[in-house]
Amino acid sequence: MARRKRRSFSAEFRAEAVRLCQVGDRSIAKIAKDLDLTETVLREWVRADEVNVGREKPPEALTSTERDELVRLRRENKRLQMERDILKKAAAFFAKESE
């Protein structure tokens, strides 16, 4: 089986695909086939939407905004740690120089 080329989809397309799944008149497998998607990716979109709107929230699940904030905070934390390390080295250098 040949691998499918990685595609990207707009937020509107994803939202419409999820909406079709929530209507419930067709199975996720049928909708995925009709939209030329894999069933797995469509199920992931539906699960992510359920977490984002608060319908289902397993303890380890993060909403999109929480995930974005986590990425931002990790980046900021790394920058602050680097700044702290630089200041420690500078303080040690100047303390050594003043002896």
Rank of each mutant, 00 (worst) to 15 (best):
R79T: 02
V46M: 07
E16T: 08
E39T: 13
A95V: 00
S10R: 14
E99K: 05
R43C: 10
P59R: 13
T65D: 15
R67P: 02
A92V: 04
R74P: 02
T65G: 03
R26A: 10
P59Y: 06
M1N: 09
I86F: 06
R6E: 04
A90V: 06
L70K: 02
S8E: 13
G24P: 14
Q22E: 15
R72A: 15
S98L: 11
A29Q: 05
A11L: 13
F93H: 04
R14V: 06
A2L: 14
W45G: 03
F93S: 00
R19C: 08
T65V: 13
L37E: 06
R75Q: 14
K78L: 04
R55V: 07
E69M: 06
R4W: 01
T63W: 05
E69T: 13
E50G: 09
E50K: 14
L62Y: 02
K57W: 06
I28P: 00
A17E: 03
K33Q: 15
D85R: 03
K78E: 12
R72T: 10
R74Q: 09
F13N: 02
L20Q: 14
S64E: 12
Q22M: 14
K88Y: 00
A91C: 11
R6S: 12
F93A: 00
E66L: 09
D36F: 08
A95R: 03
V18I: 10
T40S: 15
R55P: 00
K5T: 14
G54I: 09
R14G: 01
V23S: 02
K57P: 13
E66R: 04
P59C: 05
M82E: 02
V53H: 15
V23E: 09
S8H: 12
D25H: 05
N77E: 00
T40M: 15
R74I: 01
R3N: 04
R55S: 11
V18W: 09
G54C: 10
R55W: 12
K88P: 00
L62C: 05
E39H: 10
L73M: 11
A91Q: 09
E97V: 08
Q22C: 07
M82Q: 04
A95T: 03
D85K: 01
V51Q: 05
E56T: 14
A48L: 05
V46E: 06
A32M: 04
R74M: 04
R6G: 05
M82K: 04
D68A: 12
